[in-house]
Computed example of a mutant assay.
Amino acid sequence: MSFYLDDAQRHTLTQRRNSFTWRTEWPTWLLIGAIYGGWFFIASHARGFGLSIAIPLLAVFSAWYMSLQHELLHGHPTRSPFVNGLIGFAPLAVWFPYRVYRDLHLQHHDDPHLTHPEVDPESYFVSREAWRQAGVLTRVLLIARNTFVGRLLLGPAFSIAATSTQALRKVARGDWADVPAWVAHFVALAGLVVWLDRQCGIAPWMFVAGVGYPALALSSVRSFQEHRDADLHEHRSVINEAAWFWRLLFLNNNYHLVHHDLPHVPWFALRKVYVASRVQYVQRSGGFLVKGYSEWARQYAFAVAMRPVHGDLSRGARFGRPAAAAAFDTFSGGLQAPLRVTSTTPVARREARGSANGERDAPRHGRYESRS
Rank of each mutant, 00 (worst) to 15 (best):
P112V: 09
V282A: 05
D175M: 08
T14L: 13
A161N: 09
T12M: 12
R173N: 13
R132H: 15
S19Y: 10
A161K: 06
T78R: 05
A93W: 01
V275L: 15
A352E: 08
A43K: 01
G85V: 03
R139E: 09
G201L: 07
E234S: 11
P204I: 04
R318Q: 14
T14Y: 11
E234R: 07
Q107K: 14
V171I: 15
L218I: 15
L218V: 11
R173P: 03
P117M: 05
A269G: 06
R367V: 14
A43W: 03
A215G: 11
H11L: 14
S220W: 01
F82K: 13
V119G: 03
V290T: 03
T342E: 15
A184N: 05
L72E: 02
N240W: 00
E359A: 12
P263V: 09
A276T: 08
F20N: 05
D7R: 14
R47A: 14
G135F: 05
T28I: 12
V211C: 02
G201M: 06
R298A: 13
L31C: 10
F319L: 14
P204W: 01
A209M: 14
R353I: 12
G210V: 04
V341Y: 01
E129C: 08
R139F: 06
S372W: 11
A130H: 08
R247M: 09
A181K: 00
V126L: 07
V282F: 04
I239M: 07
A269T: 07
F302R: 06
F40D: 02
R16G: 04
R222F: 08
H76P: 03
S332T: 13
